[in-house]
Design a binder for these strands. Structure first.
Lengths: 333, 333
DNA sequence: TTTATAAAATGAAACGTTTCATAATTTAAT
DNA sequence: ATTAAATTATGAAACGTTTCATTTTATAAA
């Protein structure tokens, strides 16, 4: 048996297409007709074909989300929160991965556009505005998440990486630490660069020189971070270690556990991103925490605003991170 | 400037709708016309409206995936792998979360159907066939992942939970362990129940009685697992601990780290799911590993087969897990 | 050159909605 | 009971494709 359509409802009720459509879209109609349609819909098991509706209204109620990879706790949680907020407003999320490849990223955008998504959220992997020239021909709202790319005309939702790192490294300096190792992502990664800047800011605030040999960069995965940090700690030239992203924080936890380094007695540890997993570390980690909920919320609300208006006023939004002092950092005496 | 359509290509080339359509779909046409169309498409910047195409062909090239939550490493990796395989075949993935709520799950299926997805992959949260009555009216291929629900007519892709657990617990028994604690998910969770059965099988294989007080159940999150396992280990009534899912394995790692329990000297630890994070644990964990790649691959290939044929022959597929003996389990002397 | 055949092109119909100008009906006012 | 005004219903057109029966054109054979 074929799926029932509006026309079947018309036939059953004797009413016209226009009337049934009005019913479906919440218009006013005579009570008797409303009831007739109610009944017909019930009997036929009719459901609006949202796909056809999207075809005609040109609003598919779908938001495309383009991530480096799904398999990333941080983005997974953002998407999860966005999905919740969007589904409340009748929107769905279609996700694709760029695998950190600008080509694939561009292809995916094309793919999304061809499917008429209403809006696009990208965690960009490109480094320059040149990589995003093609967005000029995209006529739907676009939000870039987490990474700033100068010269791209779209909405940005970022966190105050530099500022919060300045604040937290200042705290370590105030505690008397001077040999503070920092382990970030490879150079050129926006978030990591910003965090390094904050680290430098703090040293400058204290009128101190940065020891370049304590600034490390490593690929964003736990394995690599773990190996590097084990090496750093075995050389033991620092009293504090700032792992400036989640994989590094994670690698650090494993390294100190394995090396039986007592935290914070032998080493002060400052982490990034308070994921479920870090919470069970003992002692409680002093940590920079990104406001995932707010990021998702702001992204969605900006998106919705753009979807309502015809004219966009793209902004660069910067959300404040939380610096939470716990038990993994000590005051040097 | 409005987006170019086929009709614009027609106007520019003087050819008909049918001809241009044939061009787009790989039919044969005169070389001269082919070139004319090539040129027109180039000049107009024309791209097929996949949405409209899907509307008419009734194949949206989209697979719906319904997960308990995104924020789950195991499922995230499966989806990631599926997305890769599917995108190669021109398919996209739209993901939604059920939040482990059968109602939401059903709603999401409705949502998917209204959007005309071509196929559906579900990690079900319902416990009985009754929860899935509504699937009878769904006329697209459906694959259930990870959890078996008896009486539901659809494809299943599972792993041999019971068998691999039997095998691995037998190994522990062979090593001389008798007090083997097992920590699983709450009762009623298919995977966990199966794993518990495998545990019992092994004891039976050895002609031994299971000590019920060593069978624990705990919510599937690291925090809870960590707390429970700490408690279990402080009572110290076992020589081995089998954490039969990922959160529990994780909680166990943190518990033994914090309690400074030496593995495998003081306790043999058997884990589940070899995620990135467990790999950096020292000593190398003896572990049951699910074949994530195979799960994704099989799911996709079964899906594709169903999409080609008109008649489905739904199967229950069971993939073998890997039991990897490493350094976290000791032979008792 | 003519005819038969094969290959390519044509264009109307369909998909399931919304939209909107027009028509019909109801209600209110005289 | 009429008329005017307000409300509700109507149905053709549009959205951008594919499909397919029909027509046109090219090719091969006579």
């Amino acid at each position: 048996m074929k799926k029932a359509t509006i026309k079947d409802v018309c036939k059953k009720t004797g009413l016209s297409l226009g009337t049934v459509s009005k019913y479906l879209n919440g218009g006013t109609l005579r009570e008797a007709n409303r009831e007739k349609i109610d009944r017909a819909i019930e009997e036929l098991g009719y459901h609006v074909d949202e796909y056809a509706r999207g075809f005609i209204t040109n609003r598919t109620k779908t938001v495309g989300v383009l991530l480096p990879e799904f398999d990333n706790m941080f983005y997974a949680r953002i998407v999860s929160d966005m999905e919740l907020a969007l589904s409340k407003r009748g929107y769905a999320v279609t996700v694709r991965e760029s695998h950190r490849d600008v080509r694939k990223e561009r292809e995916s955008v094309r793919w999304f556009i061809a499917r008429r998504i209403d809006a696009l959220v990208i965690v960009p992997c490109g480094k320059s505005a040149q990589d995003y020239e093609y967005l000029k021909e995209v006529s739907i709202p676009v939000v870039f998440l987490d990474h700033y790319v100068s010269g791209v005309n779209c909405e940005f939702v970022l966190v105050d990486n530099r500022e919060v790192c300045r604040r937290s490294v200042n705290y370590l300096l105030d505690c008397g630490h001077r040999e503070i190792a920092i382990v970030g992502a490879p150079q050129g990664v926006y978030t990591s660069d910003e965090r390094m800047r904050g680290y430098r800011d703090a040293f400058e605030d204290h009128g101190l020189q940065v020891d370049e040999s304590l600034c490390y960069h490593v690929e964003e995965n736990v394995d690599s971070a773990y190996l590097l940090i084990k090496k750093i700690l075995s050389e033991k030239r620092c009293t504090a270690l700032f792992a400036s992203n989640f994989p590094n924080t994670y690698g650090a936890i494993f390294a100190v556990n394995e090396m039986r380094i007592s935290i914070p007695d032998e080493l002060s540890l400052l982490g990034f991103d308070d994921m479920m997993f870090t919470r069970v570390f003992h002692p409680k980690l002093t940590i920079v925490d990104q406001p995932i909920g707010q990021i998702a919320e702001l992204t969605v609300s900006r998106l919705m605003e753009h979807l309502q208006k015809k004219e966009y006023d793209y902004r660069v939004n910067v959300l404040a991170c939380n610096f939470e002092i716990n038990d993994s950092t000590a005051v040097l005496t």
